[in-house]
Amino acid sequence: MARWFGRSKSKSNEQRAVEAEFENLEPLGVSDDLRQAYGRTGDPKLLRGSLQAAELALEVYPVTDIRHAAALSSLCMLHRLCWERERGSADLIKSVDYGRQAVDKSLPGDPVLPRHMSSLATALQEVYDSTKDEESIDEAIALYRGCLDIMPVRATGLNEERVAQESNLANSLLRKGRTNNDGAILNEAAKHARAALRDTPDDHPMHAMRLINLGGALLGLVQTGHHEHMSTAEDMYTRGLRELPAGHPVRAGVEQTLAIIKGLRSQFGV
């Protein structure tokens, strides 16, 4: 771990022993562990360490190793997390650049190519959110569609990654549909949001968010004049709010949206 956390000029034998042990670890695994720890704690030192470990992995694995593309994809995700934390435009640019490289350099038959595509799509979605650049959201939508095209469909059991991509596609379509006030796009967003909700067990940690996502797509349709979706949109938000744990960061937004729906009900007499 010394190679990505830096070397001090003066170390005890114990410190050197610990560093030697970490030098033998798989850097992508170290990066992933640190990223997950960052997700639990929000400690920026862990995020920096995860970045440095992923950078090391990029040096260690040649382009003929599928882990090279995985390292690029990790850097895409990590720079996006840095962007979300610091809002530095350089991080978002790097995120998209690493994401493109990960997709371009994935070897034929790479089983985790959909993850690389999804990571790039999420970065492009962030670009759209900050710039409203239509090409970015169109590319994100195409990438999420591509993920679903190449991911296997299981006959039984929950396919977590496929359901996640279905939800991601719904959210990208919702963004584009709302901006353009396009009912056809919003209908497609609702279709994918329904599919994601249908395949998410009631006790799944993402169930509440999938309810809210479908509510968002239906509310978008309401706002384009399709008032017949008002009751279902309200129900989705109400159920989602009920399932969200106390203190969840989106609770306030959901409560505000429910107030908007009540206002729309009063306005249109629905």
Rank of each mutant, 00 (worst) to 15 (best):
V153Y: 14
R251T: 11
G177C: 05
T238Q: 07
R7L: 10
K132T: 08
W83D: 00
S106V: 02
D104S: 10
R16H: 14
G109T: 02
A90Q: 05
E26P: 12
T257A: 02
L46C: 09
M1A: 15
R178Q: 06
W4S: 07
S74T: 11
M230N: 04
H79Y: 11
H227S: 13
A17I: 12
E188T: 00
A142Y: 01
Y61N: 09
Y61V: 10
R87F: 04
A142V: 03
A123K: 01
T224D: 07
A70V: 06
N159Y: 11
P62Q: 04
T64P: 05
P205I: 01
N171T: 09
Q223A: 08
K11S: 13
A155F: 11
A17Q: 14
L58T: 11
G39C: 08
V60I: 08
E188V: 00
A69G: 11
C76I: 09
Y144H: 15
R115V: 03
P152A: 14
T156I: 07
P111T: 15
L264D: 03
Q52L: 05
L143S: 10
E55N: 09
T41H: 12
S136A: 15
E243Y: 08
E21A: 14
P249M: 12
S50K: 08
H207M: 00
M206S: 12
R194C: 00
Q101I: 00
K94A: 02
K11W: 12
I137Q: 04
V250L: 06
I137D: 03
S74L: 04
P152W: 14
D199M: 00
A70Q: 05
N181D: 07
R178F: 00
E26S: 01
R242D: 14
K105V: 01
